[in-house]
Design a protein around this nucleic acid. Sequence first.
DNA 1: TCCGGTATGGCAACCGGTTGCACAAACCTT
DNA 2: AAGGTTTGTGCAACCGGTTGCCATACCGGA
Lengths: 320, 320
Amino acid sequence: MAATIKDVARACGVHVSTVSRTFSAPHLVNPATRSRVLAAADDLGYRPNRAARALTTGRTFNMGLIVADIANPFFPPLIKAAQAQARGRDYHVFVADTDEDPRVEEELIRTFTKQVDGVLLCSPRLSNKMIERLAEDVPFVVVNRRIKGMPAVLMNVAQGAKLALEHLAGLGHRRIALVSGPIGSWTSNEMQGVAAETPGLDLVFFGPNQPTEGGGLAVAADVAACGATAVLAYNDLVALGLIEGLAAMDIGVPDQISVIGFDDILPGRLNRPKLTTVAMPAVAAGRMAVDLLLQSGGEGATVTLDTALIVRESTGRAQR
Amino acid sequence: MAATIKDVARACGVHVSTVSRTFSAPHLVNPATRSRVLAAADDLGYRPNRAARALTTGRTFNMGLIVADIANPFFPPLIKAAQAQARGRDYHVFVADTDEDPRVEEELIRTFTKQVDGVLLCSPRLSNKMIERLAEDVPFVVVNRRIKGMPAVLMNVAQGAKLALEHLAGLGHRRIALVSGPIGSWTSNEMQGVAAETPGLDLVFFGPNQPTEGGGLAVAADVAACGATAVLAYNDLVALGLIEGLAAMDIGVPDQISVIGFDDILPGRLNRPKLTTVAMPAVAAGRMAVDLLLQSGGEGATVTLDTALIVRESTGRAQR
DNA sequence: TCCGGTATGGCAACCGGTTGCACAAACCTT
DNA sequence: AAGGTTTGTGCAACCGGTTGCCATACCGGA
């Protein structure tokens, strides 16, 4: 059994409240008493029970971070940045993965409620309505989604998509395939919105798709068949799967088809050809989300971070 | 303010204990009463406060999972497997990343204590002594480390290394480079041990190295210069870095040098050439760790899981 | 009709802390 | 020396639940 505050109190003949104060308000207790208490506490290996403390104070000093898929290389940098930032603010981050399942997402949020002071919701799959409802029980910061009145960190996908399309247009591509992500993905919508508004392009939409290499692999044949000379993929994983699928059909990238992804994840950098991609500000987003959660009393500041086009080897002049 | 058990009790004119029982021991309460309580609870949006409940029951129904580096693609599958397994047992998993820093690791464990029922410690960086000490406060299951009397999940690295070396030998390789990982890594030691014991090979050691692509990139020149026709790398990231470095020197893999990694991570599968690797049973390990934590009352069962050689495209017959 | 047994739900202590309030001792003032 | 501050500590209520014990009501059986 771990020692409790009572054990310490008994051990040095003092009231529990004094022990409590020794840890949470040291200036209120006489230095002599304080050191006696500390000695006894150290002796017994006493550590305050954070859960019990949270019950009265209402603060846990930890925050939850929920992602749809921790295996997606896009998230780890964001997670690490959030953890580092939180650590600097005396907070700890608990991460959980929903497996892309909205019900799991809801359950996780419910679990986090009362065990954390707030939750960072990254690329949520739940409906806005549901998120708003759950927000009554625990403060949120949403990443990659805009929800009225809720603090959010957004990445300027539209701008990135614009850069990508301009890059492709500059290389002479006109017929461009748009390989989107899961239904209801905010990012997907942004991409499509921009593409539709860009004049002079001949767009072909494919979707919805799994946001994984499997998703890319699955549409490769259709994309090849549609006559597009370039592809804008939902993310790097999809792009990589696509390239793999094209390779299996002996279609060279970028010689016959150019491919651009989103995210700038590690496998894309290691791939041959190295993937041209729109880099997402994941690190900045992680940091910012933590700050927003800690600052905002839940008030809805929205931060939009810029993206950048990284031209590598998977894009080239349009064949014709 | 979220509704508490008291609000519900008041709302339907019943004692708090009855409300409590409605949720934690339904068979003890009259069906009629029960449905009144449930109605009121639903009406008020009441959810039991898990932290408060844990205070009296001593069970939180969540477990912690600590990894050294969440950005290492080796971990996500393990994490996901653990989460899935835990979910099936009505548990939730909170993940945290230590950034390879033992002090952070210790702090995280302390934070988890009393907020979880147990902790899965993956590839810990703390000393055995410290881990044993901390184990007095919270049950552990250790992954990839052997600590006396503590439940552990081990991966049979030695066996995997043996398979890999046999594979290379079978392809006619004799001079083989061993590119190890960080100092003190248990995995590294296992690999070297096996290699040294395998007769008929001409081994060249390189290490210690960063366990990342950068580490592989950095030794590529040395490896090329040493005359080895094959390389066994600490993990896939190192192997990929190595291949990239070799490519930069116009040395083809597997035409001129064969490369084998460890882990079987996603980028290796996506790489061209696809990486031959020793697959670690990360999924099984995640599942097993959860089961061990839930079964063992902290007693030290040790499970060793087999590895498997996955031959893909980065190994071929020895030149000459 | 009386009795033991069971179903139901209230009471109150408890989990491990925190904190407003009260009170005594010590410390200044003038 | 009397009166006003500080300072340091104890007391007890409280956070949101759980649970052992007890009282009451209801049941069937003899």
